[in-house]
Every structure is written in C-alpha cells, then in structure tokens.
Nucleic acid binder design. Structure first.
Length: 716
RNA sequence: GGCGAGGUAGCUCAGUUGGUUAGAGCACAGGAUUCAUAACCCUGAGGUCCCGGGUUCAAAUCCCGGUCUCGCUACCA
C-alpha cells in the first residue's frame, strides 16, 4: 500500500444543544483519535478536525423554550464539549464552530460556486405554500392524485400504491395535509442538490470501487439509498438562524443545516491553517491526501452520498473511507440523554477523573473499555460490571502489573538501572521475546490501518501478557536467591531485566494511541522524552540505554471497587427515574435530541395560527369507548379500532400500535373527532380520529374523561 | 410492509476466497508460585455456529425459506 502524502481526519461535528455521552465518544471521537495518534506517531502529515455544529432549527427552538437566544445556547455548550474532549485525551488539531464568520464565508462560497456552475437546481415558482399554516410545505405534507396510477392518496415524494417516486409538482389536485386546503404556489426560490444526476458516479464509486474495503453496513446502507431512487435534496430553508443564502433571492433563507455542517470540516481546516501558518488547500484538493470521516451509523448517508457529491462538484477530494460505527447500548437499553439513560462525558469526567479518584489514568480506563467494546461491526453494550472487569482484569492485572513488577524487580535486583546484556547467556526465550515485539508491531500496524481498533488494542495487551510469561519463565527472583552459588546468576538477571525493560518501552509506544495518558506516565517512569514514542522505535530493543537509572515504581492504575460500580448503577437508575417523573409532572420540558432522532430537524411544535371560535365550533368532539382493537396487517403502527359512540359504532384507524397492545385498550374511553372526513389507509376506511397526547420522547397518552361517562357525550 | 446490517461458549467478540477434533479474552474450576495492585503463570471444563431445507466428497462459511435484534424507510386525520 502506498503511503499517502498527507491525511485529513474528521470526526462528526457534535450538535451544540446539549452534552454528549460516551456512546458518541465510542462511536466517532475515540476511534478517530486513536487513528490520528497512530498516524502522528508514524510522523505522517495529518490534520484532525472537528467542531460544533451550531445551526439547524432545534437550537433556536430550544432557545425560545429556555427564554434565551440561540447564540447563548451554543456559547454555553461549545466550550463544555470542547473541554470534555480534551479531558478524555481527544486532541483535535482544531475544534472549530459553524457559527464562526470564517465558516459562514466558506459555506457561502461553497454554495455560490455550486450555484454559479449550475450544479444546483432552483425551483422558483414550484413551491407549495399553505396560507393557513403560514408555511412552505415539505413534499410529504402534500398529497394528491398520482399521475402514474391514478391513486388519489399519493404523497408529494412517492405514491405508496404504485411505488413511483414523485415530486409535488407532478401531483394532480394537490392538497396540504396540514390544513386540508389546496396549497398556493408562492413566489420563492429554493435550491436543490440534484442527487439523481449523480447516480452513475455514486454507483461506481461506492458499489464498485469500495464494495470490498468499506464496512459492510456502510456500503449496505448506501446501496439501499441508491436503489431506492435518488431525489434532489433541498439545500435551503426558510429560517433566520444559519448561513445566509448568498445569492439573489436568498433573503430570509439559510443553508439547510446538513448542507452547511460538513462544510464545517473545510472551514475548520482553514482555521487550523491560519493558526499554524499553513496552506489548507492541499488537504482538500490534492488527490494524494487521504480523507477519512469518523462517524456513527446515523450519519452514513450524509457522509457517503450527499457530502461526496458536494465535494465532487466543488472539485475536492473524496473520502478514502468512512468507518462508521454502530450504536453502543447501556445496561440493556438504548442510550438516551432525555430519558436519563446515559453516561455523559461531562459526568464521567467530574466523577472519575478527579485527582483524588485517579486523575488522568481514569480517562484512559474509559478509553480502554470503550475501545475494547467499540461497536465496529454490530451494536455493543456498555455495562459498569464490564468496565470494572476490563480495567481490573486486563488493564491492571496484565498490563499495569507487568510494568509494576518489572520496575520493582529492577530496583531490587539491578539497582534501579538498566542492566547490561551478556550476549553469551542469551537464549531462545530472549530471542522469542524480541521477535514477539516485532510481530506485535506488525499486527497492530496492520489492524490500525484497517480501522480495527479493538483488535489492535488487544494485541498490545497480549504483548504485555507475553512479557508476564517471559518473566515467569526466567524467574529472576529465584535467581537472586542463588547469587552466592551460581556465578552466572546476576548475568541472567541482567539479561532478563534488560529484556523486560526494553519490552516496557515498546509497550509504551504501542499503547500510546489508545492510552495516551498512560504512555506519558510510562515515559516519566523511564525518564525519556515523548519523542521515544515514535512508531519507528517500536521493535527496537535498545531504547533504554545500559546504565541509565530509572524512577522508582509508581502504579499506573488503581482498581475499580465493587462499591463504585454499585453506586454508578444506582445513580443511573435514579437518573432515569427522576427524568421519568419529571416528564410526567411537567408539561414544560426542554427540547432534547434523543439518540435516534434524525439530526437537527426535531423540536417543539410551534404554536399554530390563531383561529376564531367558529373554527373551533366546527369540530365535533365526542367521548367514545373502544370495543374492539386489532392490528392492521402490513403496517407497523396502525391499529384498527371499533369505537362505540353511543348512537353508532364505527371503525377508526390510529397510528398507536407501537405504544399499546390491542387487548389492553379495549374498554378505554377516548376522545374522538367525530365529524372528520373519512380517510382510507391500507385499504381500510377510518371514520374519525382518536386524540392523543405525545410527550417529548414520542410516548403517547390517551386523552380521556377523568371518570367513565356515557359513550357519545359531547365535548366542548 | 420495503431495504440494509447482525444472530458463533455464561459474557464480549474472531473466524480470510467452503477443507481435519470451530478459536481468543473475560468469567468459572483445579494446580503451581510469591517479584507484583489477592496480581502473574500452567491446565481444564463449555458450543445443535438462530431454525428448516438445498448445493457439495466437504457448509459457521454458498443458495432458498422462516425467525429474532438493531438501523433507514413507509403507514400515524
């Protein structure tokens, strides 16, 4: 494999609306950091960029909710997140932010460039607008008659009957699904990235060239998208928070957050270049640069389809790989900040990385465990017991213990100095040890180049295990007892300890990408400068000079006690319970992005336009009793209900199948919109609608009278 | 419902283009040892490779069907 001239490594931009948890860390930042530290040890030319993603609708909405400004929100979280990464040893070369003028300038120029060359499509008069809801309508909020099959319930993006992909303009007799009115066409310009023009390119690049060397899940998801039919994606929005659309007709519009965020990688690189007096251009333009995006699986489409198309159009290089990780669960459930079921980086740092708790070494403990269970090929699971086992059983017992016993023996048996070698007494075991080091270096190097970080780390620990075996076989503590009778005893001890010490130095080099704080501490023990950690030194057995005196032993880690684990588990359950009761007792909650919510688009629903009493009077609300309930076939979310309204029983469909078992809701009294126009779904006609309340996690609740009353009772 | 990725020892995972008795670490059991953070070292026990068919001299691996988990997507007046 030819060594690239330079590397540009990116880690997904964290959304600056809240704290980030260890799942985020394990998914993108830790593997990226390991890779970068390795490359730097190899003395490669590498820049590691990241930064806060600070645009999108969720941030101004959260600001409104908290009675503050969007700027205040991002100013609050940006520095915390940045510091959290530092505390965990994630060392970006630049941690930028998309609210920075340099980014606005860069994203603007990027957009202008694409626009000026006709790479974007504009649709000036083709946009539907709902006057009543006072908003432009996304494709799926418009329905009408399918031009292909004549189905009259087709949506603006696709007809579900014949499966044909559509655009809203193709629909016959379009209707807004928000108000039920026919939408008007409003004079506005929106810009689109026509992904459909690039299908051939994407097929060739992803499905042919990278079918083998990218992770199966990544290629699989891309394939799914391409096969599903690529659509033009809107790149602008009607919003005033973000990067202004820099061309005529762009007033009151900003770049869609997914368009501007990845450009943040470029602006971050520019800022890095300014700070370091370098040229940023080769990093994005020279084909000899290797670009790698580290992300979680929720970001695959943006980084493998949309952004590459943008880069190609803009004349930039394409990513060489996108090693997306799957998700990390926690103690048997999905991680979710809003549900309190997560471990925030900030919390871990405050609890564990305090000086009295072990300081920096506890950052490495977390890095070690997270990497050992990194979800590289499937979802994985963090457990506190697993954390304790990994730290106590491998990091402490195997790795740290090897270093410690080496240091103790060296001070007892060789006066705290690196002993000389006696070549005539070297044997096969000594040779084997050196060979193992060289082999491990090769293995670790190969694995790192293949983004197999958990395996790579395992190999390093295994080398320490070999060290323990070597020492066990040589038994220098026994030799020391025979020093009077065996004239070669001291020489044998010297050879053994020399090997053990050289191995320690090698372990420091090899563990450095994974556990940087530990490597630093080992350098301190060996009284060497960090330069020794350069990768090319691994495999050498003369890193520590004979006669050099080393520091007294110091423990690299402490053990994790059972009580600490019990405390964490209790805390986690308490947090989840607290969040739950909080959600049940307050209706004034903050908008928080759940782990599985799609980036940047969700938030509190804005208040709808004012209506007059007559409008309200048109709605006939009744109390109904559910008498039958069953699942609708071929629909995950729909239940078919038979509801007693007193004067009649009617069929009503409701999208609640994910929340209730049919048998559990029979007999429930619910609120019905009784005079709603019937609507067919999945071939069944629904005559009315059940009112549901939804909390911030999407959990549904029936709206019912507080006591049972007669079916059909009116509500006003 | 469509698409994608997974299902291998109690736990976390490897298993390269099909090729002997399916591997590793942890946990567990026994032994040995004391330099070391009750650490290390040696040995052992353990699996219907999700289920059912098929192709083949030979299947964890390839094909078909089913099932479970996760993700994307559709359905949610």
């Amino acid at each position: 494999m030819k060594t690239p001239k330079r590397y540009l490594i990116t880690a997904a931009l964290p959304y600056a609306n809240g704290l980030k948890h260890i799942g985020h860390l394990a998914g993108a930042y830790l593997p990226a950091d390991i890779y970068v530290r390795y490359l730097k040890a190899q003395k490669r030319d590498v820049v590691f960029v990241c930064g806060s993603d600070e645009h999108g609708t969720a941030i101004p909405i959260q600001a409104t909710k908290e009675g503050t400004t969007a700027q205040a929100i991002i100013d609050k979280y940006h520095p915390i997140i940045e510091q959290n990464f530092k505390d965990l040893g994630i060392t970006f070369d630049i941690y930028h932010r998309t609210s920075d003028p340099l980014h606005h300038e860069t994203a603007s120029a990027f957009f202008k460039d694409l626009e000026s060359r006709g790479d974007l499509e504009t649709k000036t008069s083709e946009q539907y607008f709902d006057e009543q809801a006072n908003t432009f309508l996304a494709d799926r909020y418009i329905k009408g008659t399918c031009p292909n099959c004549g189905h009259n319930e087709a949506y603006g993006d696709q007809c579900e009957k014949c499966g044909k992909s559509l655009s809203p303009e193709e629909l016959i007799n379009p209707v807004s699904t928000l108000s039920g009115n026919a939408p008007i066409k409003k004079e506005t310009t929106h810009w689109y990235l026509p992904l459909n023009r690039h299908e051939d390119f994407l097929r060739k690049w992803l499905l042919e060239e990278h079918a083998q060397d990218w992770r199966p899940a990544v290629v699989g998801q891309c394939k799914s998208w391409i096969e599903g039919g690529l659509q033009p994606r809107a790149v602008t929005r009607d919003l005033d928070w973000g990067v202004k659309v820099p061309v005529a007709g762009g007033d009151g519009k900003v770049l869609y957050v997914w368009f501007d965020a990845p450009i943040g990688y470029i602006s971050a690189t520019k800022q890095w270049a300014i700070n370091n007096d370098k040229d940023w251009k080769p990093y994005w333009n020279d084909p000899e640069t290797k670009l790698v995006h580290f992300i979680g699986k929720d970001n695959i489409v943006f980084h493998c389809i949309i952004f590459p198309v943008m880069l190609k159009l803009h004349g930039n290089i394409l990513p060489e790989n996108v090693p997306a990780n799957e998700f990390m669960n926690l103690e048997g459930d999905k991680m979710s900040t809003s549900r309190g079921w997560s471990i925030e980086m900030d919390d871990y740092i405050n609890k564990w990385i305090k000086k009295e708790n072990g300081g920096e070494s506890l950052a490495d403990c977390l890095r070690f465990y997270l990497n050992s269970i990194a979800p590289e090929s499937k979802d994985s699971e963090f457990t506190w017991k697993g954390f304790q086992d990994a730290v106590n059983g491998e990091l402490v017992s195997i790795f740290a213990n090897y270093i410690n016993r080496t240091w103790v023996l060296m001070h007892k048996l060789t006066k705290g100095k690196v002993p000389p070698i006696h070549p005539d007494l070297l044997d096969d075991d000594d040779q084997a040890l050196l060979l193992s080091v060289k082999e491990t270096k090769e293995k670790v190097t190969t694995l790192l180049e293949q983004y197999k970080f958990r395996d790579a780390q395992f190999e390093v620990v295994n080398l320490a295990r070999l060290g323990n075996q070597y020492m066990q076989k040589k038994e220098p503590w026994i030799l020391a007892k025979n020093i009077e009778t065996d004239p070669t005893a001291q020489a044998k001890i010297d050879n053994c300890m020399h090997g053990c010490l050289q191995l320690s130095a090698n372990l420091a080099i090899l563990i450095n990408p994974f556990l940087p704080f530990t490597a630093k501490k080992m350098c301190h023990l060996m009284k060497v400068v960090p330069k020794m950690l350069e990768w090319e030194n691994a495999g050498n057995f003369n890193l520590l000079k004979v006669g050099y005196s080393l520091r007294p032993p110091e423990l690299l880690f402490r053990k994790i006690e059972d009580e600490e684990i019990a405390t964490e588990l209790a805390q986690l359950k308490a947090n989840a319970e607290a969040k739950k009761t909080k959600m049940e007792t307050t209706n004034n909650t903050t908008a928080e992005k759940g782990a599985n919510e799609n980036a940047n688009e969700k938030g509190i629903t804005p208040l709808k336009p004012e209506i007059v009493f007559d409008d309200f009077g048109k709605i006939d609300l009744r109390v109904g009793t559910i008498v039958e309930a069953k699942k609708v076939e071929k629909a995950d979310k729909l239940l078919e209900l038979l509801v007693d309204l007193g004067f009649e029983k009617r069929t009503i469909l409701s999208g609640i199948a994910m929340h209730f078992y049919p048998e559990d809701i029979v007999g429930k009294q619910v609120t019905i919109v009784a005079n709603l126009a019937p609507r067919k779904m999945r071939g069944i006609e629904s005559k009315g609608m059940i009112l549901m309340a939804e909390d911030e996690n999407g959990k549904l609740y029936f709206v019912s009278p507080s006591e049972a009353i007669a079916a059909g009772s009116g509500i006003s």
